[in-house]
Amino acid sequence: MLHPPVLEIHSHIAFVYSRKTRGHLEYKLYVCSVIIDLYMAEACQQFPSVVDRYFTRWYKTDVKGQLYEDYCILQHSNRICVITLAECHPVLQSGKNISSISYQISANCSRLQNKVSGKSKRGAQFLTEFAPLCRITCCDGDEYTIYSCIRGRLLEVNENILHNPELLKEKPSTEGYIAVVLPKFEESKTVTEGLLSQTQYEEVLLKRTSIPDSKVDL
């Protein structure tokens, strides 16, 4: 027995297929599969995953006005935030291949030079909401800048994805994370204001695949 929204998605897929169109269609299909994955995963696992046990998922869509560039911010109960790409981010679409990732965000600023020391994490680069974290270049020439989305101290960036960009695609919400950010203590509750909750985000996704939208686009 499938969850009602999943049934709905199925009908969307059927609809989209029937139009036999290209372009955004592929993306919409991908989004649909993501939503199905989400529900399937929930249904299959009897216990919550590491991310679900300790973190709250927050989403930001169309970051910097770039269509479909969605982020998922995992906030730990201890206020630490892990910046990840949401499954719907264009970089993660099937068919896209990452050619390189760079934490060098300007001529004289590299996120790799970030060094923190002590319990109070002295020396951390401070990030504003729109501070760039890294640039991802894809094989097709497309380039994406990834932003922090969260105000706070940069604790670390994920150097593993430099050597192994596939991690980003395989496990975007765990081993393929972009960076770890520690919001200020007094801002720990407010940094996620303006971000979408899991359910709100799912609604956004459903809208993206909705019929009127498709009609306009196609």
Partner: peptide, 10 residues
């Protein structure tokens, strides 16, 4: 570990 990173050095 991330779960203790807020109170221990990295």
């Amino acid at each position: 570990p991330l779960r203790v990173l807020h109170r221990r050095p990295l």
